[in-house]
Design a protein around this nucleic acid. Structure first.
Lengths: 229, 229
DNA sequence: CAATAAAATTCTGTATGCAGCATGCTTGCG
DNA sequence: CGCAAGCATGCTGCATACAGAATTTTATTG
């Protein structure tokens, strides 16, 4: 018998690719990740396989598979015999992650200057301009998402998949922190200034400058976020 | 009924930690990872859940959980409906990973110079000296393992867990490549020379020099390995 | 009333069964 | 003889059942 779904899990079909049938545990991974980021599953809380399974409308088997996957990403910790716990990130964890992210984005910037096509750089420019519109309107959430998109795009056009992979892992760990770390107007302006310089260095293909500003951008991110933890 | 084990999976008990009971899927993860590194599961081959389960003496459920975990590490690829396939790394994948590893180790070197205690540096020196003994005896396998230990130790004494995490993931992906990439004597000598400079820069806490030599060391590793793929 | 021990309940870990899809083979037709 | 459609087999994906560990509740004693 299929499990009763209080809130059935809908599978996202807008996947690109030829006929890639979406798998259930993959959908669960995405869903649980979002629940962690949005705070539905607060850090430190134990995950109850039975209840969560019912809530998502799936049985424990694919749910457990998804939990193992997320544990490998570092969003969960597994204590044998006691199930999965949402990982707590200490301020040091966050700081350390941002240091690494800054380093990785610096590298990505250098590689992007070297390997990106003009068209790709133009696409990033478009994202940037749209983000600036959102800033002009003080539209926080769309701004936030475009911001993330820009950083991800720089990773993409660096044409280094391994780099994008590890960046994505650390990025996912911090998404919740950034999500709650809504800074005040003066700091927001600083971040916007950074982004102006990022796009200008990228368009000039000035790898040293881009690398430096991306790295420094992370340092400032820490300054913005550290009091919110 | 417990499944018949042609070659029962023994659980490694030498785990550190207070009373951390080893969990089965954890043991399976380690075991399958080793099978991939050692080539028992060649790249590109599909993993047959039934057979492998019988071979390891476990049922499909924990095995599948382990496969999801390894997929998240990037050692396997999951094609829905077709199970897990051992990931093939293209030469570009390897090169890209080494570029990132070089960058990460460079960062780790800087941080280690800053944060490591004298005692920790001395421990790395000991590893280095033991490795040199192995080199003198042309003892390849112990040399290989000590080599890995030294690099891991530098990551550890950099006191940045996020850094160690992502380094570990990329390192695991390349372990198989390094395992088969047994270079000739002249290149081996070059690697040894690098290591002499690494330890000397670390003892001098010369972060710039250490960072540079670690980064360059990876570049040379590529030169050594690229023809073996 | 507090503390401890024992029992009951709940939850995790593992095995197994079943349904649906993928794959390879066979057979029929051009 | 070649190609394609249909069929048979086998494997994956998911659900469920069961055993053992962990936790909570309760009872008993100091």
């Amino acid at each position: 018998m299929k499990p009763e779904a209080a809130n059935p899990l809908t599978i996202d079909l807008e996947d690109r690719g030829p006929i890639a049938r979406p798998s259930l545990h993959e959908a669960i991974v995405a869903r649980v990740r979002d629940m962690i980021i949005e705070g539905n599953l607060p850090p430190g809380s134990r995950i109850h396989e039975g209840n969560l399974g019912i809530e998502l409308g799936v049985s424990r088997t694919p749910l457990r598979e998804a939990l193992k996957f997320l544990a490998s990403e570092g969003l969960l910790e597994l204590s044998p015999g006691r199930g999965a716990v949402v990982r707590q990130f200490s301020p040091k964890d966050v700081r350390d992650s941002l240091v690494v992210l800054g380093d990785l984005e610096g590298l990505a910037g250098r590689l992007a200057c070297e390997h990106a096509t003009d068209a790709e750089i133009q696409e990033v420019r478009k994202l940037h301009d749209r983000m600036m519109d959102m800033y002009a309107n003080r539209d926080r959430l769309p701004y936030f998402k475009l911001n993330q998109n820009i950083h991800t795009a720089i990773l993409r056009i660096s044409k280094n998949e391994a780099l994008a992979d590890v960046h994505g892992i650390l990025q996912a760990r911090l998404r919740r922190i950034r999500y709650i770390g809504n800074e005040g107007p003066e700091k927001w302006a600083g971040a916007v200034a950074d982004h102006e310089e990022i796009i200008s260095a990228l368009e000039a293909r000035d790898s040293e400058r881009l690398s430096k500003v991306l790295n420094a951008h992370m340092e400032k991110t820490w300054e913005r976020v550290k009091n919110a933890i």
